[in-house]
Every structure is written in structure tokens, then in C-alpha cells.
Simulated scan of single mutants.
Amino acid sequence: MSSVGVVTPFWLDRPPSEALDIAVAADETGFGTLWIGEMATFDAFALATAAGLRTSNISLKIGPLAVGVRSPVALALGLSTVVATTGRRASLALGASSPRIVTEWHGRPFEPVRLMRQTVRDTRAILDGNRVNGFRLQQAVPGTSISVAAFGPAMLRAAAEEADEVVLNLVSAGHVAQVRSELTQARVPPPIAVWIPAALDPGPDTLRQLRSQLAVYLAPPGYGEMFTALGHGELVERARAGAPRASLAQDIPVSLLEAVGVLGSAEDIARGVQEYFDAGAEHVGLVPATAEDPAGRRLLTTLSPLLATGGR
């Protein structure tokens, strides 16, 4: 059954604490899943604990977290701590992240595909209560779902073979359909979850916020090729040549924002979400734009009844 959740964004032009306000708004408006990632503000497990203590029903999906930054023991301890201290359902998501975050920030080698398979296997075994490399978790969380964020054929193969769910971020519905087709080659194709920016009746500040975020993704492998296929190769070439992000952002057309997000009226957004389901996604995580809608509360309040028929 298809479902719609909410993602805590980390907009650079908003206070970090807004992530908790979004968690509360998502819970109060009846969404069933809250994704909690990690960037340059809060530790994801600490933020998930705080969100769990401030909400009533919403389940917590922590990540995608950079594989290789935390060991399987650290990942299992973090997830177990969130469940034990909040009493909330929680699951885990892992991803490649980027060389800048993994190598420059954390001083770890960037070998995500090599590490992913073993990390998923070991983390799952530890959470199930098994002893791994001499360690056994005292508060096991058996049956915990582990998702893998995948971009590129090698990571997609690893996700198809090891993960309970494949996560795609900032992609078009067409890209989801392509990934769904590729996953059919797997013995048991995992479900697909997709994160997409969402903005209700966006004004200039919201469009500026969305453009600034998308500009970060123009150059990286995979994303750049997708944006080129969507007809925006000139922007990708400029990004890869080192053009300033601010210059790139101001030239991103609304049509590109609409290709990888859902913008407009409530009905427009609901139709856009359905397009992702039709393309093969089982879950859509909405990333609320908050420049003109603090905590995304107006967006979530308006969309909740419209999206209820798709399952939450």
C-alpha cells in the first residue's frame, strides 16, 4: 500500500530547531512516518530521540546516514537507544553521502559500495540480537527495517540485494520508473521510497530556497546526468566547471523544480505525488519548503486529508 511521510529538511536559511517543529506538525496532522537525516546541525539519533519525545504516534526513520562514518555497532546502539527512550517505532536508512562529508569531515575512506553490503548485514544481525565480532546488543530491536539510498548501478545492485527498501532523493517520476524497471531484475525487488521537495503556492522566497538546494546537486555524478536528460545540461556543465552556487541557483527554471518536486496548489501537489506512485514508488517523503510556511504546517495541514486515500 502506498504511503506518504514527511522529511525533516535542513534548509540553510532556516533555524535548525525548525526540524523539531516539523516533526510536531507532521505528527499532529496525521502523517505516519518522519524521516530524520543528518547534515551540519544535529546528530540524527539525538534529534530522533527529541522528536520522539515531543510527538505521539509518528514512526521514525533515521537516515540515510553515511555508511562508513558509523560502525554497525554504533548504528545499532543509536537505533536501540531511540526505541528504548521514546517507545516509538523506528527504522534505519543508510547511504553513500559524499567524499566531502565522509573523508573531509570525518576522516574516513570513501568506499560506500564496498562497505554497504557488510554494514547492512552486520547492523541487521546486531539489531536482531546476534553476536557480531564479539558484540551483542543488550536491548535488541529484531526485525528492524534497513533502507539504502541508491544512486548509480553499483549501489542500486547492493540495495536490491541487501536492503528492505531503496531510497531515491530529488529525482523525477521518470527516474523512479527507470529504477523500478532495473529493480525487477532482482530476485525479490525491494520497495522504493522517494524524497521530493513540496511547496504549497510557492512565492519568491520559497522558490529561492528550493533553487539554492537544487544547485548543490547539479554537479554530482548521477544527478547531473539526470538533470541533463531533463534538458538542463548547460546548468550541469557550468556547475561542473566550478560556477558559483548562487549564480547557478538564480538560473534554475521553475520547470526543473517542478520536475523533481511537487509545487503549486494542494491539488497540483496531490497529482504530483500520485505520479510518483504511478511510476513505481511505494512511499513518498515530502520535504516541506518552509521559507514562507514555517514548519511546513500550512502545507501539511492542507495536504493531509487529500493524501489520506493513498495511505499514510
Rank of each mutant, 00 (worst) to 15 (best):
T55M: 06
V120E: 08
G68M: 00
R297L: 06
A219R: 07
F10C: 04
S147H: 10
L183F: 14
M1L: 01
D13T: 09
F151E: 04
D278N: 13
L307R: 06
G296H: 00
E161I: 03
H175A: 08
R157F: 00
L168I: 13
L47V: 04
L306E: 06
M116H: 03
G231Y: 14
V120T: 08
S98L: 05
A289T: 11
T290L: 02
T123F: 10
P197R: 05
E275Y: 00
T85A: 15
S181V: 03
G222W: 05
E234D: 15
A46T: 15
G242L: 12
R298L: 01
H232D: 06
R238Q: 15
L257F: 15
V284E: 08
A48C: 07
V166M: 10
F227E: 02
A246T: 15
S56N: 11
V166D: 08
V216A: 13
A158E: 11
P72M: 07
S2Q: 12
R131N: 03
V236D: 09
A50S: 11
M39C: 10
G242I: 11
R298P: 01
L218A: 08
H106R: 07
D293Y: 00
A259P: 00
D21S: 15
A291M: 04
A160P: 06
T55P: 05
G107T: 13
G203C: 07
E161R: 12
E225V: 03
A84H: 14
P197C: 08
A173H: 13
V6G: 08
P288D: 05
A279T: 12
S17I: 05
A74Y: 02
A291V: 03
T206G: 12
L306P: 06
A177Q: 15
H175E: 14
V7N: 06
R208G: 07
D27H: 13
A44C: 13
A295L: 02
L20I: 05
E162S: 15
R131P: 02
G152W: 03
